[in-house]
Design a protein around this nucleic acid. Structure first.
Lengths: 171, 171
DNA sequence: GCAGAATAGTTTGACTTCTAACTATTTGCT
DNA sequence: AGCAAATAGTTAGAAGTCAAACTATTCTGC
């Protein structure tokens, strides 16, 4: 039987405590746990999206457009709904446009606004990718009860960071 | 009173359910919650580290070196302990070396290995930055009980992703 | 002793993130 | 009507991530 690998986060907690920083250890464990899990989730998701030539960031934009009434939204709205920086939206939409999955057009109502619209090819791709990704979401390695607990706890954190208003559950 | 902002993740859950993908909604909510919280944490942490000219990634490397016996480690060990890709370690150490916070030397015992050592300037900086960051970790917006619940749940996820062995609690 | 396998780290390139600064347009106030 | 403020999106640059491929060195088995 091979030697057990120590959990890097547990080791970090021990280090923090031995250094006399016990009162910060819980916060540090939370931060590094979230960082590590995010990295794992991104890796797993990008693996599933690679056959479609998509990353998660670009998939999310296509998914958002597919949900919207006319399959088109202003760039700013995309950024707000996905909570990413305008420059990040510009960059991702550049690539989606390069791959002919979306089209940019200047709004006729407001010359400042750029509309992003899903193309037929983009729609077909995102629907197929969603099937694959939903399969992944359904088998993510936690029970629904456990997920609900984590999601609510993270919602409290998002609220205390001023990200959202206080309110009802997500799930 | 201004109009309440809807929670983007709650809206996404509604969209998922209306699309008939209810069984994937919990997994999707977990993923987007973790993504968003990670982004918030990185933003908050980088804000506190900016006065030191550090990012969280570089801070972690300095912290790890500061914890090690001789304030030096092989590059590969740094990558394994922090669970980042060798290329990412190369990149971050490039910058730390540029700022004279670390020094690289070739191991005398094994010509393949590169040792990274903390400089006196680097040590001073990381100790000061740690004080600031610990203050942040102590006031992170969740009770220790709540943190413990989330960290354990995320540990289960890390385990089911094959990241770590099953075992005791982190905290 | 040597060749192939394994290990260590780097390089290249793509991608995503954000900050800061910019251009272009609209809004609101006087 | 005109100007300043606000809004929308882009550009430039820096940073960090990883995949793939590379160079260099050590280890292993024959």
């Amino acid at each position: 039987m091979s030697k057990a690998r120590p959990d890097p986060i547990a080791v970090a907690v021990d280090n923090w405590r031995q250094a006399g920083w016990g009162s910060a250890a819980a916060g540090m464990a939370l931060v590094t746990s979230v960082m590590r899990v995010q990295q794992l989730l991104v890796t797993q998701i990008d693996e599933r999206l690679r056959p479609y030539g998509l990353s998660f960031a670009r998939f999310e934009i296509l998914r958002l457009l597919a949900f919207s009434r006319h399959a088109a939204l202003p760039m700013g709205t995309v950024g707000r709904r996905l909570q990413v920086h305008p420059a990040s939206v510009t960059s991702a939409v550049d690539r989606l446009e390069r791959d002919e999955l979306v089209l940019r057009t200047r709004s006729v109502n407001d010359g400042r606004r750029v509309m992003v619209a899903l193309t037929p090819v983009g729609r077909s791709l995102v629907e197929r990718a969603t099937v694959d990704l939903n399969s992944y979401f359904e088998s993510i390695g936690m029970s629904d009860e456990q997920i609900e607990g984590v999601v609510e706890a993270l919602r409290d954190l998002r609220h205390s960071a001023g990200d959202i208003d206080a309110g009802e559950s997500v799930l």
